[in-house]
């Protein structure tokens, strides 16, 4: 479905390298395991293939556990990122049957043991190795956003409802799944023009901070390219923190850009302030 991103090899047909004696999907009462088949991308940015592994799965195991089993028992150099194993750090992002997901939060019982599960790296970013991508572009975008800027005399007295307005956006665990799924970045590779949903979430989090005074509207229009978003909601759908990215972060910021740049009164004000500054 998606076009190719630079440094991302096309997913090829699976080659079978690992076969255990147990038939796929079988339940082994002795070890209390069921065998699942995983087709895992192995390779770097230039060259790679899907390799099939049969993995014994116990009740409650998540997809990341299956990958760890492969590391410990079949492929010690299989590259995969993880840290918390509880959906808090946003490290273990990848695509499972093409769906951008946190692998530590995907229970194996969600999948059918008789159908191979395809595990590939995020597609919007160049592959470093196996399931690990080069996500450094995201950090570069982040560095361009004007940081939190309180007034010099801010006294930091504010109330819980003030906090709540920003809280949703500050839940972001920087998993970059929204960046991965957004077609502007994924299919059109507009990384030079569009900052992507994660960074509109970040600027919303800053904007709604009760003590922040910075105006990021120009950044939003010129650098972040908020106009590229055509409100498909795909980002909101994949966000593991259930942030309403499109409705609560992007649309209000689009409106602010419109107000400031296309509202004639605001335009005059801006011109005047340009003259005076």
């Amino acid at each position: 479905m998606s076009t190719q991103t630079e440094g991302q090899p096309p997913a090829e047909e699976a080659t079978t390298e690992e076969q255990s004696d147990e038939p796929t999907g079988d339940r082994d009462p002795e070890t209390d395991t069921t065998t699942y088949t995983l087709e895992v991308y192995r390779g770097d940015g230039e060259d790679g293939e899907l390799v099939t592994y049969d993995v014994p799965i116990q009740a409650g195991m998540v997809l990341l556990d299956a990958l760890h089993w492969i590391q410990a028992n079949r492929q010690p150099d299989l590259a995969v990122r993880w840290n918390c194993k509880s959906g808090r750090c946003g490290s273990c992002s990848m695509e499972i049957d093409g769906m951008p997901s946190l692998s530590c939060m995907k229970r194996m019982s969600e999948y059918d043991a008789d159908t191979p599960i395809r595990v590939t790296p995020m597609r919007a970013f160049p592959v470093v190795k196996d399931l690990v991508c080069d996500v450094s572009w995201n950090y570069e975008v982040n560095a361009e956003i004007e940081p939190f800027t309180p007034a010099p005399d801010a006294d930091f007295t504010f109330y819980q409802p003030d906090v709540e307005r920003s809280r949703e956006f500050r839940r972001c665990i920087e998993c970059f799944l929204c960046q991965d799924v957004c077609h502007v970045l994924r299919e059109h590779d507009k990384k030079d023009a569009y900052a992507g949903p994660r960074y509109l979430v970040r600027s919303a989090g800053l904007h709604f901070h009760p003590e922040d005074t910075a105006d990021r509207t120009e950044w939003m229009k010129e650098d972040a390219g908020v106009g590229y978003c055509n409100i498909t909601h795909c980002c909101s759908d994949v966000c593991p923190e259930d942030i309403e990215i499109t409705d609560n972060a992007i649309i209000p910021q689009k409106e602010r850009v419109v107000d400031e740049y296309y509202d004639p009164l605001a335009q005059i004000k801006r011109k005047l302030s340009d003259v005076w500054s």
Partner: peptide, 18 residues
């Protein structure tokens, strides 16, 4: 902790805004 707040950390509040 207060410095962290000045750098932007948004802590839960008391009823009197602290």
């Amino acid at each position: 902790v207060r410095t962290l707040q000045e750098w932007g950390a948004l802590f839960d509040r008391t009823d009197d805004g602290k």
